[in-house]
Nucleic acid binder design. Sequence first.
RNA 1: GCGCCCGUAGCUCAACAGGAUAGAGCAUCAGCCUUCUAAGCUGAGGGUUAGUGGUUCGAUUCCACUCGGGCGUACCA
Length: 564
Amino acid sequence: MECGRPGIGQREQEVICQRDLKLKEYLYQIFKEIEEQIPELKETPLIFEVPKSEQHGDLSSNVAMLLSKKLRKNPREIANDILSLIKYDSEIISKVEIAGAGFINFFFNPNYYTKIIKIILEQKDKFGKSSKYSGKKANVEFVSANPTGPLTVGHGRNAVVGDTVANLLEWIGYQVDREYYFNNAGRQMRVLGDSVRLRYLEILGEKIDFPEDYYQGDYIKDIAKKLFDEHSDKLKDETAEGIFKEVAEQEIFADIKKTLLNLNIRHNIFYNEKSLYDEGNISQLLKEFEQKELTYIKDGAVWLKLTSLGKEQDKVIVKSSGEPTYRLPDIAYHITKFNRGYDLIVDLFGSDHAATYPDVMAGVSVLNFDSSKMKVLIHQFVTITQDGEVVKMSTRKANYITLDELINEVGKDVVRYFFNMRNISSHMNFDLTLAKKQSDENPVFYLQYAHARICSILRTTEQENLRLSIDHLDLLNSDEEKDLIKKLNRFEEEVLLSAENFETHRVCFYLEDLASAFHKFYTFRRILGSEKDVAEARLALITAVKIVLKNGLTILGVEAPEKM
RNA sequence: GCGCCCGUAGCUCAACAGGAUAGAGCAUCAGCCUUCUAAGCUGAGGGUUAGUGGUUCGAUUCCACUCGGGCGUACCA
């Protein structure tokens, strides 16, 4: 798509390009044609947005207000000038008017709008997909919990949003890898192995003083029991680092994968931090930093000169013990992502990791990798309340609620919808008591119900030998029908915007809007008992709605049931 | 102390790039099923967008400060 608008900053151009969809594209064209007469238009960002109120048309522009300063003229006068200059096809636009302080409002011809129904019926489950980014590769890294215990409700937000972002990227054309990065070495894993060993010795009847800072959860006892069942007392002289750690890791990882599968999440790449050591990435990276004279030694440790890269303070990358801190492998790890040829690298993690990624970015940039390909998404924490009290979560202390327990309690669809429906930047409160008791009132059922309702109508009408037809779509001219059609027209752009902004909650809000428009239509417009042409057109309409609902739910990873 | 995120209706959250009368769901109240699913629809009440200033035609949105909450601020990851 041609998107050169001279005189506008790059960022603005990008944004404008995003929105060049169908009807907007048409409006941009119209305005381009009058740039000769109003040259200032070339330097003014041209935005068309969907007004909140229907009275203000289908798309609206504030360009006259933006021009008013430059032209030193009243915005309404400018709007008038624009109006007298632009030429448009009355088949597409039925009315243009000036309103308020100087908004230019466009009303589209309803008959043109109905074309979307034909398109949806043709494209079916492909409708809403775009090829804007086809040929590009993306890597989405999410969950990445180390195998020290079961996934908690807190991990749920990361898991669900990560998978949904990956889905969205696929919908706009990316080929996506879902990656899980983990570390099965180091102190925490030694403590894990030793926790199992002590529980095992307990089973053998030894009196153990179980340390407070060891893993307290019952799953440790389960693993110990399993080892006892298989090996009896033969392991009593084994060290924590051996079989205890290995089996613990295996069992816990199997459990994590099972939980993710319960949410229909499958990572296709599991990346072990250890391989960065085995394959020399770490030592190589250290060498490169040294060559660039970005390191120095102080107190027996190696420091990275982050201050020379514009950061506030230098940080240790190799401890005086000779072990690297997490910073070094993190940078080395991201370099592998660049080397693996991704055009987009997405990291998703909780706000506790927010402070670390700028260092990683600085590290990769200084080695001449294009850090603008990296997109770090930070989600705020999930506060869990039960019976009005905040539940504090710690894997160590085992006072958490596992993700699996939650899925069992409320079901996959509710969990996925709940985590997706909120902006990741908002602190989120998860009221367990409410989620369990009033799960019926979760908005996800509202969407699923709309879908099931349409399926039911289609079953009934089929028995009456009524089939959809696209021959008389112009009969869909009631307010409820026009509104529904308008919403259908928005789907492609909503998907694109959600994906490009990594905002899963937009999809939820759009679908709730669509479902609401459908439920209204259902209440006021009948199919059975209507004149045949009308009934057939309405069947086409609701079939299109059904497809869009299903496609939207698919992006979110939620089922679209035929019956409820 | 410093840095990042957040503060919107009783509760949980929206508001697309700074746009028009700040919107949904839940909860509360009043209505709507002898015809396609009432897990639905219609209507009502509920707001100084934490506060004070500033920027401008226009601020929930941008800036400054104050108050309140979360997360960081390690030779833990």
